[in-house]
Simulated assay, not measured.
Amino acid sequence: MRITTYYIVFLLTSFFSFGQSVNSPATKSIKANFTTASVKAYQESATLKVEDFYNYLTLLSNETTSGPLKSEIKTSIYSFFETENVNIIDFTTDEKPFIHLNKIIEKIQNKNYTFLVSDFESSIVASDYWTMQYKLTVIQNNKRVKSHYFQNVKFKPVLKSFGTTKKEVWTILLGEIEQ
């Protein structure tokens, strides 16, 4: 009887420990923290963030936008991404090579581009990201070029400070842009 009791305690302890280690990474996944309806709402919010990104690029490209405003626009654009060195397609050329975000920002300034996005579709949600597909129209000097792009959208918890209180907040960050 004594061996059986030890055996049961050992098994329960093992299962409890295993269960704890399995749940730890899962708590950082989207599906473990949000309902399908909530995820859809965040995907719609990500669509707005992509639209804002291209609207800011249009403003940054405009020759008449003031220097201080351009500085604020750059700060806003960088806040959409995890890093300013994220790879994106250079949608201003026919070759469409990959370049860093900070390079495309430098390249389009004062070039009077207009960027229009439409036809958004989101993919199935992975553990911490999804992919959005959309159509981008780039206009410069009355020349229109339309292309389809895919953009990774990362959704992860970030520790933020609110005065003396720290709280984990889930944040949408734009990622790589591919064709």
Rank of each mutant, 00 (worst) to 15 (best):
S66Q: 13
S38T: 15
V39P: 03
Y56W: 09
S66A: 11
E44Y: 07
T58L: 04
Y56K: 05
K49N: 09
L57R: 00
L59P: 04
V50D: 00
E44T: 15
A46D: 02
S61Y: 02
L60R: 05
G67V: 07
A46W: 03
Y56E: 05
S38P: 05
N55I: 07
K49G: 05
E51F: 11
T65P: 00
T64Q: 07
F53E: 00
F53W: 03
E44Q: 14
T36L: 14
Q43M: 13
F53Q: 01
A41E: 15
V39E: 05
T64N: 12
Y54F: 12
L57Y: 02
A46F: 02
T36E: 13
L57F: 06
N62G: 08
Y42T: 13
F53H: 01
L48Q: 14
Q43P: 07
E63C: 09
V50H: 03
E51S: 13
T47A: 06
L59A: 06
E51P: 06
A37C: 09
T65K: 02
E51H: 10
K49S: 12
Y42M: 15
E63M: 05
N62E: 05
L60G: 03
D52A: 10
S66P: 12
L59M: 12
Q43A: 06
V50M: 03
L48W: 10
A46P: 01
T58A: 11
S61I: 00
V50I: 12
G67F: 06
N55S: 13
Y56P: 07
Y42L: 11
V39R: 01
S66T: 12
Y54L: 03
Y42R: 14
L60P: 01
Q43R: 09
T64P: 01
T36D: 14
Y54A: 02
K40I: 05
V50Q: 01
A41W: 09
K40H: 07
N55Y: 07
D52F: 08
V50F: 00
T58G: 10
S61R: 00
L48D: 13
L57D: 03
T64G: 05
S45D: 08
E44A: 13
K40C: 07
T64W: 10
S66C: 08
T64Y: 08
Y54P: 03
T64M: 09
L48M: 12
